[in-house]
Design a protein around this nucleic acid. Structure first.
Lengths: 203, 203
DNA sequence: CATGCCATAAACCGATTCGGTCAATTACAT
DNA sequence: ATGTAATTGACCGAATCGGTTTATGGCATG
């Protein structure tokens, strides 16, 4: 791995992206080092030169995405916002920012949850708790509850928001998606929900 | 294929399900006939005895899911309902019914959209237009528009509903999901949206 | 220009897996 | 007992796998 870390970022990124893409798409076993090499523009021997084994590359990736997530969370301080919908917006924007740089990171993270290959279960199990936060980062608080209209079933709303987040997440794993358009849509949607479900005095 | 069609349904279904699962999960190229055989409880030579080649099996599956969809649509007459949310509910219930019998059919259909292997592009291209309907079946009509509150941006609502449908669809591709629970949730959600976004006189 | 060094990749390795076949066995109807 | 169809273990050559060997070319140093 040391050999790889000495590379410039513009040399590292294509390799990381290709690896995230292949592992994310096919899972550990069916992703091949040859595919990753070809997609990243380096030769297969170079991949092994940098990472040693396939497993070591997977391990490196898992630690890499972990650190990316941790850095993003530290910078955004999502918990500092005291309104539910604001937290949702900040978290969403944060994810968009990450996806602009690493389009395949989400697909890779999701694939780690579904990974069953014995050769890497120790790796996936270790980062799962932290990866969870990448999806569930906006717990409902007491002070949010009172803001909703009495007639609104808040559990249903939360579930709906979570589902939409998953829907967006799934769309964002598509390489052809327009992140700017998705961001704009999402902001409109959140605003619409807030203005229709909150009591008037909290708008 | 004739050999396979002579089998009883209880002998056919495990094979169809295993094939839908494998192709849906791994795509055409990385799905192997050995895996499919093992998952379906028959031997590999039997698979080739029934279907001839891997491609023929894939072709058979594509036609099979097509006919399943067509039959379901004919029976449900979704377009006969004149309220948007009613159409959504009927379409959702229809999908649930199909998924109870074919848990992997949705994942397979989605995978056909993402299929890139040259060996089967002719097959996927052919059924794509019809498969589209499986997702987009509830166009907004003029008579729906007037029912919403003036303040509601209907495009945003439609987009939200579609996203949620995708979120549910993604959840339903998970073999561990509880279809009954999802159905119940979905009905609650639709009801909540309707009662908060429609004008009072249309409730 | 000679030399040593290091990044790079073509070609290759044995092992495994692939799609597909065949010979032999089983189950069963007559 | 016998013929027939269903079924499969064992096998095929080809492809692909993770990983390595070896040869190449650039490049700094003298």
């Amino acid at each position: 791995m040391e050999k790889f870390k000495e590379l410039s970022e513009e040399k590292q990124l294509p390799i990381i992206e290709a690896a995230l893409k292949c592992f994310g798409k096919h899972g550990y076993k069916k992703a091949s080092m040859g595919d990753i090499a070809q997609n990243s523009g380096v030769s297969k021997p170079m991949l092994f030169h940098y990472f040693g084994t396939k497993r070591d590359l997977y391990l490196y990736l898992s630690e890499y995405v972990r650190s990316v997530m941790i850095v993003a969370y530290k910078r955004n301080e999502i918990n500092a916002y005291d309104d539910l919908f604001e937290r949702i917006l900040v978290a969403s924007r944060m994810k968009m920012g990450i996806l602009e740089k690493y389009p395949y990171i989400l697909k890779f993270i999701i694939s780690m949850f579904e990974e069953t290959d014995d050769a890497v279960t120790d790796i996936t199990k270790k980062i799962m708790p932290e990866a969870q936060r990448f999806s569930y980062d906006l717990v409902l608080r007491k002070e949010d509850v009172v803001k909703f209209k009495e007639s609104v079933d808040i559990d249903v709303v939360m579930r709906m928001i979570f589902l939409m987040a998953e829907g967006y997440a799934h769309e964002m794993t598509d390489e052809r998606c327009d992140l700017g358009k998705i961001t704009e849509e999402l902001e409109k949607t959140i605003h619409m929900l807030k203005s229709n479900l909150y009591k008037e005095e909290y708008l």
